[in-house]
Simulated assay, not measured.
Amino acid sequence: MKMGKGIPLSDQDRIPWLCNLHDILLRDVSSGQHVVLACSALKKMYRDILIRGKDGAALKHEESGEKERLAEVQLLVVHLRGSFEVISGRLLKRKGHFMPPELLQSQFETLEPPAAPENFIQVSVDSSLSEVIATVMETLKMKSESFLISGPQQN
């Protein structure tokens, strides 16, 4: 595994994995399940793939000129926002994780925080775990959607 060796993943490494996650999300959401996916979907393109699959965007319908809708997953992106120092400190305390703390800088460099028109909320990692959960749950009460946790991860 590249990350275990301290090598950042490329788009080519991530895209097939993201497509598989889209298919799993679509299957589970279509069957009526509520889904939580925790992953570092650092780029908008990655989040688009999670929503729309490998094409990442609606296709143009050739005959009518209308946009054909691909099978989409409705996501609420929960962007866990925190400073490099805070997240780095937490990573250094983590034992037995596949991602070495040395890769955190590459994740910050890759990160494209969610922005409009994406469906997202930002939650500070400086908040307590119970505050983070309360914020997410309150948002979910207002929006009954599946959601994705994005951004540099910490435990």
Rank of each mutant, 00 (worst) to 15 (best):
D28T: 14
G96C: 01
P100T: 12
V123H: 00
V35H: 13
S64F: 15
V36T: 13
L9W: 02
I87M: 05
L91V: 04
H34A: 03
E85Q: 15
K43M: 15
H61I: 06
L111S: 14
P152C: 15
N155L: 07
P117A: 06
Q33S: 11
Q12F: 06
P8S: 05
V77L: 12
L129H: 08
L92M: 09
A71V: 07
S64E: 09
V78Q: 03
Q153D: 06
E145G: 00
L59Q: 10
N20I: 01
Q154N: 05
L92E: 10
V36P: 02
K43R: 13
Q74A: 09
I87F: 01
E102C: 03
S88M: 10
M1I: 09
D48E: 11
D23A: 03
I133G: 00
L9A: 11
L129S: 13
S106P: 02
M99F: 07
E109S: 09
F98Q: 06
S144D: 06
G65H: 08
S64V: 06
L103Q: 04
M1C: 11
R27Q: 10
S128F: 02
S124A: 11
A116D: 13
H79I: 12
G6M: 04
K67W: 13
D126G: 10
E68R: 11
L104C: 04
E131I: 10
S10V: 00
E145T: 05
S146C: 04
S83H: 11
L59I: 14
K67N: 08
D126E: 10
S83E: 12
Q154C: 12
H97A: 04
L26R: 08
L103M: 05
R94V: 11
E118G: 15
E72A: 08
P16H: 02
R69V: 07
D55T: 13
E112H: 10
S31D: 12
M142R: 08
G96V: 04
A116Q: 10
T110F: 09
F120V: 12
S124L: 03
P101E: 05
E63V: 15
L76R: 12
K44D: 04
N20W: 07
I149A: 01
A116M: 01
L75K: 05
D11F: 06
L148Q: 09
S127K: 12
S150E: 01
S30G: 15
H22V: 07
Q153H: 08
L70G: 04
L26Q: 09
G89S: 12
Q107G: 09
S127R: 09
A58T: 14
G4W: 02
L75R: 08
A38P: 01
I133M: 06
D13Y: 00
H61R: 10
